[in-house]
Amino acid sequence: MLELRLIQGSLLKKVLEAIKDLVTEANFDCSATGFSLQAMDSSHVALVALLLRSEGFDHYRCDRNLSMGINLNNMSKMLRCAGPEDIITIKGDDGTDTVTFMFESQKQDKISDFEMKLMDIDSEHLGIPDAEYQAIVRMPSAEFARICKDLGSIGDTVVISVTKEGVKFFTRGDVGSANIVCRQNTSVDKPEDSTVIEMNEPVSLTFALRYMNSFTKATTLSEVVTISLSSELPVVVEYKIAEMGYIRFYLAPKIED
């Protein structure tokens, strides 16, 4: 028996919109810890890890660990039928091949049940090691989205370089090149508007902008994005989900041949 009630149902709608273009099918895992997902894109270049902690739900019942194979496009279609203020409850049962999404309006005067078919998905769970990163950049998520969008109109790849001067985003394409530098900026009143750079060592890595632009679909989930870089690891682009958990995108770099 599974029953997860989320007062702020819009969070789940936003999560789906953020990942459905990157990953088409995935297993949602439900345990005492929370509702989570780990999946790679079809080319195995990017990985998304989502965690919505059980404490973040208004009601969380998960009698036994349960893995639900879901086509994310279909789930997104169903969640789009929930109003922006609706409370969403996810209901499931062991041994059934469906999951039910219940939408309640805030005034409780409209209740909708959407039942969705589950599917068998053969997915491998990857072990993500705890790591020390050479540089961690925290910046406004909207600013990062703007940079990725702008650079994406010029080139296909972005070189992200962190030095003590700041973080530099560089691209080159047929029409020319572009270079955007963001300096550390903590002097603002609103901490979410700051750019903070923690650097142990300078680092410079190249990534496909197509994926970066896909990750920025999570911008509505958090005002701040954290970009963790190390020359030995995929970059981590993390959006915290208020009070609940996170959505982390891992992207393997492009390496000089």
Partner: peptide
């Protein structure tokens, strides 16, 4: 020429 690495080059199967 840049070569795209894959996630599995870094993270092992659990």
């Amino acid at each position: 020429k840049c070569m795209q690495r894959q996630i599995l080059d870094y993270f092992g199967r659990d």
